[in-house]
């Protein structure tokens, strides 16, 4: 796949940014996560952090920069033919009611029923692109555009841990109580991040997940009116 763009950031970080101006690619993201996993086992690498279609490596010393510029290129070439596998998680969600106070509003916004919102939300297999914002907060891609919903006009001060939300084109789960502006459509009971677990985060970059409705709420109500 040719020469990717590799550049330096600061004294001892390298960024692999293969296609900065093309649309976001899930195949590319899987490749970057695969490279990141390999890098993390290497002694000269302090951290390997995937972003959205890019990867930032922090090296233990500045002197490793030239050799890692080459090694990144090699890993990139190897990733082309590698078998990329990923773990899949099924997350049980209680939708609506007191678990997801904005489910009705999301249905109203799109003029569909809440059951349809749930159906569209549980159908896809989402990909964990990267984790950021707070420990264990996964940026998922794959949201059905029919339920993409703008963020709340004013964010909530305290979104409970486990809340499942939609913010624009994205969906995700809040691993800990935090302020947040996403539309909350449900809640899940799993612990996404625990500092004393190994690994501390249930979701890892490159994983995939799907949601399943634990108990459907009110059926057939047309929230549009």
């Amino acid at each position: 796949m040719g020469n990717p763009i590799i550049y330096r950031l600061g004294e001892r970080a390298l960024v692999l940014d293969p296609t900065p101006s093309t649309p976001i690619s899930m195949a590319l993201q899987r490749k970057l996560c695969w490279i990141a996993d390999l890098c993390r086992d290497r002694q000269e690498i302090i951290s390997a952090v995937p972003g959205m279609n890019n990867l930032t490596l922090t090296l233990s010393a500045m002197s490793h920069i030239p050799s890692w510029q080459q090694q990144l290129q090699q890993l990139w070439d190897e990733a082309e033919s590698a078998q990329l596998s990923s773990r899949h998680h099924v997350i049980e969600v209680k939708y609506g009611g007191r678990y997801g106070g904005d489910l009705d509003a999301v249905a109203r916004h799109h003029q569909i029923t809440t059951d349809e919102v749930i159906a569209y939300h549980t159908a896809p297999s989402y990909q964990v692109c990267f984790i950021g914002f707070m420990p264990g907060f996964a940026y998922l891609t794959g949201l059905d555009s029919r339920i993409a919903t703008p963020r709340l006009a004013s964010p909530r001060q305290n979104v409970p841990a486990g809340s499942v939300g939609i913010g624009g084109e994205q969906t995700g789960i809040y691993p800990a109580m935090s302020p947040g502006g996403w539309q909350l459509i449900g809640h899940c009971d799993i612990e996404l991040f625990s500092p004393n677990h190994n690994p501390p985060s249930l979701l890892q970059p490159g994983d995939s997940l799907s949601f399943t409705a634990l108990k459907p709420v009110s059926r057939g109500t047309h929230a549009a009116n």
Binding site: L9, G10, V15, P20, S47, V49, T58, I131, G132
Partner: peptide, 28 residues
């Protein structure tokens, strides 16, 4: 696009005034 960052990185948000990331900065 979101990317990994570390302490020392100087970001320019839309306000046009720099933010220098320090020890507790988010990872991306």
């Amino acid at each position: 696009r979101s990317h990994g960052v570390m302490p020392g990185v100087v970001q320019i948000p839309p306000t046009g005034e720099p933010i220098v990331l320090m020890a507790d900065a988010q990872a991306t």
